[in-house]
Design a protein around this nucleic acid. Sequence first.
DNA 1: GCGCTTTGGTTGAACGTTCAACTATCTGCG
DNA 2: CGCAGATAGTTGAACGTTCAACCAAAGCGC
Lengths: 153, 153
Amino acid sequence: MAVMTRWLDPDEQRTWRAYLAASRMLMDTLDRELQREAGMPHAYYEILVRLSEAPGRQLRMSDLAEAAGSSRSRLSHAVARLEAAGWVRREDCPTDRRGQVALLTDEGFATLAAAAPGHVEGVRRHLFDALSPAQVDQLRRISETLADHLRRS
Amino acid sequence: MAVMTRWLDPDEQRTWRAYLAASRMLMDTLDRELQREAGMPHAYYEILVRLSEAPGRQLRMSDLAEAAGSSRSRLSHAVARLEAAGWVRREDCPTDRRGQVALLTDEGFATLAAAAPGHVEGVRRHLFDALSPAQVDQLRRISETLADHLRRS
DNA sequence: GCGCTTTGGTTGAACGTTCAACTATCTGCG
DNA sequence: CGCAGATAGTTGAACGTTCAACCAAAGCGC
């Protein structure tokens, strides 16, 4: 028997479309700014951030993929480019001969340090400046709930 | 003189990262589902939706780009593919000889109708089911505020 | 009506992502 | 030990997006 589709009511429809439009515009804007000012897309910036926060500024490829919310394949390609740019280096993992360790070079760190203020300013201007403190709090709870929900599914 | 960067405080940091993770996972999931079940990415689905809602199921390329939140170039490429799939047709605009009108074919409409229930179910499962009614309301207000803010900047 | 700018749209190259296939190593189990 | 999976990571092709360059038609000022 056919299962009835649970269509969106007008309010949900409106919510969904507003969410789509807002998150698309936000990401497009930040991506463009980062590309212009730092010469890399947001996904690459995030890889550098995660590496910079790791002990010894290095992470196993899998852990880095996990941290940056990326697929293994995507990360492989991305690190190949970051390596070509001189921002990341790859080394063999000493404890697992299948493994690779990605590590942030000094040059990569410097590039990140140079890009960070502009990017943070963008996040603030385009996101936080538009919202009240209460809304920021709501957005945090909603996002955490959602991230949890999606991870478990 | 150097302007001080307005860094994110720990709460903002947490909000931003949760938002990033949640929206990335949500979009990745919906995109993958749509690709699997309907053979098209979410951006293409949205183009078909906008066309299906337009009078006569047709829109000028520019208006369609605006409606679908896409660049002109992206839309050109996308419509070329959608046309090759037989879901959209392009015609010359009668009132402006520079212009093109994209129109949804019957086949495109049928494909959309077939894909819609599954996609809507996905949006419900992955987004709305995780949130309380109050949170849905908050998300709508936040998104509308944000979309407004971004459009004006 | 004649140039100038603007608008509508396309194109190709470079880039980033996805997907499936593949290699190599590791782990568990009989 | 020996072998069947599982895990780590890479690769290439196909695809979608971006960016800048481009053409054609429209609007505008004179």
